[in-house]
């Protein structure tokens, strides 16, 4: 039981890291540019589709991944130029409306280009298989790769934002755009850069999960809400918060849905516990978010505005 609990904890961590990978680009754009980008999920989806195509073309997942990064960066640049650039000084609601439109456009375009049937990309040989953990329990190698990718992303972001000149400009831009621009920094170019980088992060996340998840036209939508939950729990704009939020959501969701019913059985009869567990499991993440926001209205690491 303890072993299983530890393993589930690891699974929760792994799911959390996966969520962080998806949420990282979102919190960057949202936090620094104060821009609500509902299209983040579909860019993630485009990343997954591109890696499928590129991997098929080159015959290698690794090469496909390398090609996907500049491709999604380019997608980000084009979208920024055509749409987002004109919305930086607009209300959140206008941003919601326009990016909602983009979600419809891109989802449909993906369906036209790649079809509605789910696609896949095989796991590269060196990362396939599983390693023994405890007794009969094994752990897939590729999941370890995802954990590594997520941790590296987190570390990289933290380093860029808190330790480099660009990061300093980003932080300055987040707190006072006009001042930064008065200091002679091209804010517009800075924002273009952040945005394209955010899109690339989304594409990277999509490409990383393509081997373990179904690549289908609904995949962007299913993670969008979860990604928002993660960054809101953590506090918008805080990379640290997004990381903590992702891990909390991952662990609560994973451990809660397995051990929740067991815990409930201790306080009520088994049938009722199973029933209650079934009703509560899908709500768990939302209950968590409501509780955290009720206690800390600006998330765990957010600043009250």
């Amino acid at each position: 039981m303890t072993n299983l609990f530890l393993l589930q904890l690891l699974n929760g961590l792994q799911f959390g890291v996966l969520l962080f990978l998806i949420a990282a680009g979102l919190t960057l754009v949202f936090g620094i540019m104060d821009f609500v980008n509902l299209a983040h999920g579909v860019i993630y989806m485009v990343g997954a589709y591109l890696v499928v195509t590129f991997a098929a073309m080159t015959g290698s997942y690794g090469l496909g991944l390398l090609l996907t990064l500049p491709a999604t960066l380019a997608v980000g640049l084009v979208l920024e130029f055509l749409v987002f650039r004109h919305l930086y000084d607009r209300s959140h609601l206008d941003q919601v409306l326009a990016t909602f439109g983009l979600v419809m456009i891109i989802s449909e375009a993906v369906e036209i280009i790649w079809g509605a049937a789910p696609l896949t990309v095989p796991i590269p040989q060196i990362l396939s298989g599983s390693v023994p953990l405890l007794g009969p329990l094994r752990y897939p190698v590729f999941r370890l790769a995802i954990i590594a990718a997520g941790l590296l992303t987190a570390l990289g972001l933290w380093f860029v934002i808190s330790r480099t000149r660009i990061g300093m400009q980003l932080r300055a831009g987040a707190s006072n755009r006009a001042m930064l621009s008065a200091l002679g920094i091209d804010v517009r170019r800075l924002f273009t850069m952040i945005f394209a980088f955010g899109a690339m992060l989304a594409g990277f996340a999509g490409a990383m999960v393509a081997p373990i998840l179904a690549v289908d036209p609904g995949m962007g939508e299913s993670v969008l809400i979860l990604a928002f939950v993660v960054i809101v729990i953590g506090g918008i704009g805080s990379i640290k918060g997004a990381f903590a939020g992702a891990l909390i959501v991952g662990i609560v969701d994973t451990v809660g849905r397995i051990f929740g019913p067991i815990a409930l059985k201790a306080v009520m009869d088994p049938a009722a516990a199973a029933q209650a567990g079934r009703v509560l499991a899908p709500m768990l993440v939302y209950i968590l978010m409501a509780v955290i926001l009720a206690l800390r209205p600006a998330g765990l690491f957010g600043q009250r505005t």
């Binding site: 299983l4 792994q14 179904a214």
Partner: peptide, 26 residues
Amino acid sequence: LDFSAELAQIAAMQPDAVFAFMPGGM
């Protein structure tokens, strides 16, 4: 999206077989 928790349970229990109903992307 992620079934690792359930799969860990299955691995721990080593049942005779698994029966699944998971339509579509799931």
